[in-house]
Amino acid sequence: MIKILLVDDHAVVRMGLNVLLNAVPDMEVVGEASEGDEGIKKALEKIPDIVLMDLSMPHGKDGLSATSELKKLLPETAILILTMHDDEAYLFRAIQAGASGCVLKSAPHQELIEAIRSVCSGNAYLHPAATKRLMDEYLGKLNQDGSDSYQLISDREKEVLTLVAKGYSNKEIAEKLIISVKTVESHKSNLMEKLQMKTRPELVSYALKKGLLGYGMQ
């Protein structure tokens, strides 16, 4: 059985979730709370597998603060945020606080049940629209100027990039790094794909921008 704790300031919402989830064969609601502090207390008593946490609770501790505190106290308990806010800012904040996912209160019942099972299995869950928006935003940042793409570059690729920017040929780079010319060409190809660049001058400009010519192999 998946043990679930409900934390929501609306009694009607808790009652509806109680009826819905207790009707699912492998789920059981083991407790309820109307605000964050009460939710933390109940979680410590019941040790649920999952906490369904309302994001906006005007009285007492809000969902984000409660999530952050609860994850420190019960790191093995997954927290699934219930929210009316279809907004990236809220999603990022919830994930940063330690939530395993977010489900809109307007979502179909079956989506909530699937989200609970997914999170209970150790996966993260975001409703489909949120997933698309987060991916679009991530890809958009990568396309801006390659600044975020720097995190995708391996240490070896950074060495190759530095030497390319210093004007070394593929053969010279291979000799310095004690690798084959073919491997150098592969690293350069990967660099260009990750940085979305097509020419050597673009790589040199990028290396200068990143300050790579101020250090590296001599």
Rank of each mutant, 00 (worst) to 15 (best):
K176S: 10
K176R: 00
K176C: 06
L177W: 04
L177P: 03
L177G: 00
I178W: 12
I178E: 13
I178M: 08
I179Q: 01
I179A: 02
I179P: 02
I179Y: 07
S180P: 10
S180A: 10
S180N: 10
S180C: 05
S180K: 07
S180M: 09
S180Y: 12
S180L: 08
V181E: 15
V181T: 12
V181N: 13
V181R: 14
K182C: 10
K182H: 10
T183I: 05
T183H: 07
T183S: 12
T183V: 07
T183F: 08
T183G: 03
V184E: 01
V184D: 06
V184M: 06
V184L: 05
V184Q: 03
E185D: 14
E185V: 04
E185T: 02
E185M: 09
E185A: 06
S186C: 08
S186L: 15
H187G: 02
H187V: 03
H187A: 07
H187W: 13
H187M: 08
K188E: 01
K188R: 14
N190F: 11
N190K: 09
L191S: 06
M192K: 15
M192I: 05
M192T: 04
M192V: 00
E193A: 14
E193I: 09
E193R: 08
E193C: 10
E193H: 12
K194F: 04
K194H: 11
K194R: 14
K194S: 02
K194T: 03
K194P: 03
K194M: 01
L195V: 03
L195G: 00
L195R: 03
L195I: 01
Q196C: 11
Q196L: 14
Q196H: 15
M197T: 01
M197G: 00
M197P: 06
K198Q: 15
K198T: 06
T199V: 04
T199Y: 11
T199P: 08
R200M: 14
P201E: 00
P201F: 02
E202K: 00
L203C: 00
L203T: 02
V204F: 14
V204Q: 11
V204Y: 14
S205V: 06
S205G: 08
S205W: 08
S205A: 11
Y206I: 00
A207V: 07
A207Y: 07
A207R: 01
A207G: 09
A207D: 09
